[in-house]
């Protein structure tokens, strides 16, 4: 039997990925994408960058908190990201529309969502006494990422981020689809990669792949709202998915532990 493991070497060589950097990318790229994509339906495909960045940030948050072994399963953390953000996104967009400040609506939704996450984190840490030091920070981040993912999806699918977009998506029920693919996109990377041999970089690669898969789905749904323009989103998503997923599978093969059993290999016979 031969056992070869390249993962051990990789871990030593890998540079530590900074969580703050991922958070910064998540917030800045998502906001820029949301605002630029809403200018014209021809730019709606740029929302895809927001989906990728927000999903990456959320998946990183899920990984950070679920690594402590919370006992309820990784999916519950991912579902919370979107569940906690729903009320805040609605309120932010609705208040923005009512006060006539649609431009500030995403920022308001994001802040309200972060506060919801903060409260959940504080409750979990200090009332439910969960012994996880990163709980407060991660819950805040996860809910914030959930809100950004929602709005990036809105803008990619309908070409606008306002309350009208939410109404349009809710009427046809697509908003629930966004909810579940968003949650799956965030929870799947760590859920699939967890284990003793889990590596940060590899999990994030899968997060990029799940983000790309969401872009493809957003592109398909978008055909109903924006027409043929959304083919562009679909194509970008497809290319991004092929590239990221291929990279993830290659990395997995490279780092996987190869255990050959059965007949004794030729080399050992000699």
């Amino acid at each position: 039997m031969t056992v070869s493991c390249a993962a051990g070497k990789e871990v030593k060589e890998e540079k530590k990925i900074n969580n703050n950097l991922i958070a910064a990318i998540g917030v800045i790229v998502s906001f820029i994408a949301i605002y630029i994509a809403s200018i014209s339906v021809f730019l709606a495909f740029l929302g895809a960058a927001g989906i990728l960045a927000a999903n990456l940030w959320g998946a990183n948050g899920v990984r950070t908190v679920a690594k402590y072994g919370i006992g309820t399963g990784v999916p519950s953390v991912g579902m919370l990201a979107l569940g906690g953000a729903v009320g805040a996104v609605f309120a932010g967009l609705y208040i923005g529309k009512m006060l006539g400040i649609e431009v500030a609506a995403p920022i308001l939704a994001f802040i309200l969502s972060m506060i919801t996450g903060l409260l959940i984190g504080i409750c979990a840490r200090y009332i439910l006494k969960m012994n996880i030091p990163v709980m407060v920070r991660c819950m805040t981040e996860i809910c914030g990422a959930g809100a950004l993912l929602f709005m990036s999806q809105f803008v990619t699918i309908t070409g606008s981020y306002g309350y009208a977009a939410l109404e349009k998506l809710a009427e046809v029920g697509v908003v629930l689809f966004i909810f579940i693919i968003g949650a799956l996109g965030m929870l799947h990377p760590y859920n699939a990669c967890l284990g003793a041999d889990e590596r940060h970089g590899r999990t994030l690669k899968l997060a990029l792949a799940t983000g790309s898969a969401q872009i493809i789905l957003a592109g398909i749904v978008s055909i109903y709202f924006l027409g043929s323009v959304s083919i562009l989103t679909l194509l970008i998503g497809a290319v991004a998915w092929v590239v990221t997923y291929r990279d993830f599978v290659k990395t997995s093969f490279k780092e996987g532990i190869v255990v050959s059993t059965g007949l004794i290999p030729e080399v050992e016979k000699k």
Binding site: L82, G83, G87
Partner: peptide
């Protein structure tokens, strides 16, 4: 969303 937040 409200249901899931409370269930979590």
């Amino acid at each position: 969303g409200f249901f899931i937040a409370n269930a979590v």
